[in-house]
């Protein structure tokens, strides 16, 4: 019971849900990269993810729960942290002792949350409607051209790319600090932090590359 109420437990929840979402990003970016290098594999993988009952009815709800837990706990922490300083400083020089990204996780998180709303609207709601509302037959070849067509409008591509920049900033602090939150700070920490920072740049960069690639290489009929 003490674990549920404590400030440290909230750190564990943020760290573990964040790490879970990081593992999901690895899967997501891997499948998405296939849309650039192998449309057939992309179609095959997307169809599998879209119709496999374990993915659909077990992994997908767990993923959505992970996202909800992460951002709800982020809001709870932010509210508590604001209460912890009821009178602010006239002059507060945060830049003197901590990087911008670490002090503004709530803002990068809010942008990512807004992006998720757009992303769900673009792909997930469309997919649910296709399968369960319109009850269309299975079509294992539709995913590639549907994805590429999504990135035809310039505004959507730009929104996605900007969101990936914010995702990078969020990961830059969040991924590395998740292990500190779980109590890991030892001889492996330096190497792990380097890996986390590389991950924070490479993965969002790959997502941005995919969006821009499809915008610049539309399907011509």
């Amino acid at each position: 019971m003490s674990l549920i109420k404590s400030s440290l437990a909230r750190k564990y929840v943020m760290a573990l849900s964040g790490l879970f979402l990081v593992t999901f990003l690895i899967l997501h970016v891997t499948i998405n990269l296939a849309s650039v290098f192998s449309p057939d594999f992309f179609n095959e993988a997307s169809h599998f993810m879209g119709y496999n009952p374990i993915v659909q009815f077990l992994m997908q709800p767990i993923l959505i729960a992970g996202v909800i837990v992460h951002f709800v706990m982020g809001f709870v922490l932010e509210i508590q942290n604001k209460k912890a300083r009821n009178v602010g400083y006239v002059k507060y020089k945060g830049s003197a002792n901590a990087p911008w990204v670490s002090r503004n996780m709530i803002y990068s998180g809010l942008v990512i949350l807004a992006f998720l709303a757009l992303h769900f609207y673009d792909f997930w709601i469309h997919e649910m409607a296709y399968k369960y509302v319109e009850a269309n037959p299975e079509d294992p070849t539709r995913y590639y051209h549907e994805t590429v067509e999504k990135f035809a409008p310039f505004w959507r591509t730009i929104l996605y790319v900007v969101s990936f920049v914010l995702l990078s900033l969020h990961l830059w602090h969040g991924f590395a600090s998740s292990f500190q939150s779980m109590g890991a700070n030892n001889k492996y920490t330096v190497g792990f932090t380097k890996f986390a920072k590389i991950f924070a740049v490479v993965v969002p960069l790959a997502f941005a590359f995919i969006a821009l690639y499809h915008h610049l290489n539309p399907i011509t009929h």
Binding site: R10, Y12, Q80
Partner: peptide
């Protein structure tokens, strides 16, 4: 408030207390 691992405390501590202590407490 809750720790969000910004590291500001370690930088400003006049005695140089390290963040490794926070990891140890966690």
């Amino acid at each position: 408030g809750n720790c969000t691992n910004t590291g500001a405390c370690e930088v400003e501590c006049p005695k140089g207390i390290s963040l490794t202590n926070i990891a140890r407490m966690n």
